[in-house]
Structure formats: C-alpha cells, structure tokens
Design a protein around this nucleic acid. Sequence first.
DNA 1: TGAAAAAGATGACTTTTATCATATTTTTGA
DNA 2: TCAAAAATATGATAAAAGTCATCTTTTTCA
Lengths: 232, 232
Amino acid sequence: MKKSTHTAILCEKCKSVNKSLIRFCSVSELESVNYSKTCITYKRGEALFQEGAMPLGMFCISSGSIKIVKEASGGKEQIIRIAGTGDSIGYRSLIMHQRYSTSAIATEDSKVCLIPREEFTKISANNNQFYEAIMLLLCEEIENSQNKMAEIAYKPVRGRVAEALILLAQMANPQGIINLTREDLASFVGTVKETVIRTLSEFKGEHLIEIDKRCIKVLNINGLESVSGLYD
Amino acid sequence: MKKSTHTAILCEKCKSVNKSLIRFCSVSELESVNYSKTCITYKRGEALFQEGAMPLGMFCISSGSIKIVKEASGGKEQIIRIAGTGDSIGYRSLIMHQRYSTSAIATEDSKVCLIPREEFTKISANNNQFYEAIMLLLCEEIENSQNKMAEIAYKPVRGRVAEALILLAQMANPQGIINLTREDLASFVGTVKETVIRTLSEFKGEHLIEIDKRCIKVLNINGLESVSGLYD
DNA sequence: TGAAAAAGATGACTTTTATCATATTTTTGA
DNA sequence: TCAAAAATATGATAAAAGTCATCTTTTTCA
C-alpha cells in the first residue's frame, strides 16, 4: 500500500506531543525521530497495519481517530479500543517481536507519524523513562481490556452502549461529538448494528443524546452514567 | 487475614522455578528472595488478595491453582484468567503503584510464595532480564485478554466452553483432569452455571468429555477444537 | 451533481441464553 | 459419620439480543 506522506511536522511543534510517549524523549532523541519518521495521512477506512503483518514501527497519532480491531467469530469484527490524538499504537508487537495481533484502521481522516522499528528500539534501550512509560501503558491496557471483557460478559447492551458513548464523547473533538458508524459502535460494544441503532433511538427518546446524521451528541452525561451504572 | 506459613522451600529447589519469573534471578538475588519471601498455604476458596487492597508483593504459585477475578455487573464474577504452578501474579499493581484491580482466590489448595514489594522493586531495578520478562508477560496478558474479549463478544457459549476446556485441560494436573466448580467455569467463559451444566451434558453425550463428580476429563481434544472452531 | 453504494432505521420473527423452580447428588465440617 | 450446606442437574419459561427483510436517508465518487 503506497501512501502519500504529508509535510512533516517537527515533533516538538506537534500539538499532540505532550500527550504522547515521545514527550519522554531527550532533545537529541527527538532530533533523530524527526529525521527518521514518516508522516502519513490516512483517509477514513484505510489501514495503518493489518493483523498478521510484521511490525514496521510505532505509530503516533497527531490527529484523527484509529480503531484497533480484531477478527472475531463469524467474520465479525471486535473493536478493542479507539485511539485518538496523542495516542501511540503498534508498539506491543515491536516489543514482542511478533506479528500484529490486531489491525489499525482510521475511522476518520488522520495524520499519523511512523517511527521506524530501529528508532523505537534505540530509544527504549537508552531512555529509561520512555521504557517505563511503555510499561505503564501496557499495564493500563491490560486493565482496560479486562474491564471491557467483564462488561461484555455481564452488562446488557443498553449499559454498554451508554458507557461507550460517555467514553467516546470524552475523547472526541472539542464539542464532544461522536462521529462513528453504527456498525463500528456495535463492534466496539460487542453487538450488531441493529441493536445499537435501536438503543440509540431509545436514548434519543429519553433526551440523553441528539442524533444528526451519523453524528451523536451527548446531551446528558449523568443520565447515561446512571443508565450504565444501573447494571453495575 | 492471618495465614499459617508452611515450611519454606528454597526457590532453587522449587519444582516450579524454571517456569517462573524468578528463574531470571541471579544467585545472590535468589538468596535474598529466599530470605525475604513468605510461603503460604491457601485452602480452596481463600483469597491471596482482594480487589481494592494495596499490593503486598508478587506471588509465585509453587503448586495449586488460583483464579483471578473481577467484580462484574449484577454482583457477578468474571474470571479473567486462571493461574497455575509456576505462574506469578500480582506484579502489575506493584508496577502501577495502585490497588489491586482484581482479586486472587485459590480454586484448590495451593502453595504460594509472597515476594515482598521491596524485594520485587529491587530486582526489577537491577536485573534487566527480569524486567524485560515482565514486559513480555504484560504483552502476553494484553493479547490474552483481547482475544478473550472478542470471543465473549461473538462466540456462542458452546464454542467458549469447548475452548475453555481445552485450555484448562492443558494447564491441569498431569492427567488433564479439570477440577473446577461449574459456577467458576461459567464465570470463566462468561455465562451462568446452568448454561455451562447443559453444555457439559451435551459434550458428555457426544463423548467429548467424561464427568466424574465435579471432575471433567477431556476425551477428545480434536472434537472440542472443532466445536470451538465452528464459530471462528 | 447525480447515480450508485453505503449506512441508517424499523418491523417481524427466531434463536440463544438467562431466570426460576425444584430435585438430586456431593461435599463439608461439627 | 452424618446432618447441613453447597453444588449439580434438569425442566419450564422469559427476556434479551440476533437475524432477516425492507425501506429511507446519507455519503461517495465518477
């Protein structure tokens, strides 16, 4: 897949840098990253990497939104998490020296920098703070996926959709508008699109959200929280 | 919770050591571990630690079986994983400097060594191999829980039970006999006990397993695999 | 910009799985 | 060891969510 690279932004000028892993880099490391990285623009639906491929490097999301997905039973797709501006993805396969166990696909047009494997390895070998930050990220990811696992197992769809909306609204663009396919939303909470659509209609009827075309705006976070909490 | 300590086994004599994280310790580190650790016997149902408590150290399972559980919706319990001989547990909270996000409960009488927090911290700070091994364990745990998440979301109960039986049979005692409450099995695959019981009856009828009291013996792994794979 | 494709919405129906009730067997511990 | 408690087993029923069909709206891109 040939991708056109966009004009590189220097990491230190990138508005997502203080959220990103690379904030732990020294000045000289940053310089090296700036030199070696590739900046790529992905359109909605395009893949940064595919399950089963060899890892190329670490991706830093400088803007946009990327879904991390896994093939599931019956050709269905499970969205493991959704990464946004400032998040780094793809480093786990790098650490494990293994093929990607998930795919990463842009859910909206996104700007992403790819830090090549060697660069990543060099930094993690020399920069302890960076290495420890990764360790913490891994720990958080474990916690998140365990929580999600328990939720999918025992919380009814209504509660899961409510929770997902809260989470997505928080990480969404300034105005908290969620722009995600119903199908993606379904993969994210572990159902099918029809069920999500129905649940969203309910929420709309209860004035918890507002729907404009594909976009969902949360009107009443507390309300959603209590829906979600009903099943805790 | 006062627990009687059993006679300490020297780590180097422990039959689980070559599976355990502490195989990466140097001779002098091992000496220190031997000196500082506490060896505890837990009876079935007893907790090594509880969700919400501050971490005491890292637990090494020298024999037995421990379920890692999380409170889920409706007072239900989700078993995140089941750890056996040679597995280490509880290190993640140590790394994150946070309270336990799960509880650990013995599913059979177990012998466990507790390596105190300070000891753990000391080793991870000085022994790079040890530290990296933990990193890899974290990565594996992420992968496992993501797989499990996708499975619970989209694979029907029958397939999940089949898969669980395969996994449990592999990690079980020599003869591959699974000794787990139906309720625990249910928490493990994310259902209720009645459904598990029914599924097990089916499998018994199909000569895939044999049931003797609580114990389940897998007769036909390939058969179970194809049941599980049916839904991939 | 306008036709084709994709996504959203909704109803009818089915399937899966949970719940409840109850009886039996197994395990536990005084 | 034996009575009480816990776990297993099974049927009947209910509820939740999935599937399928169809129609409308929105988006895409030639």
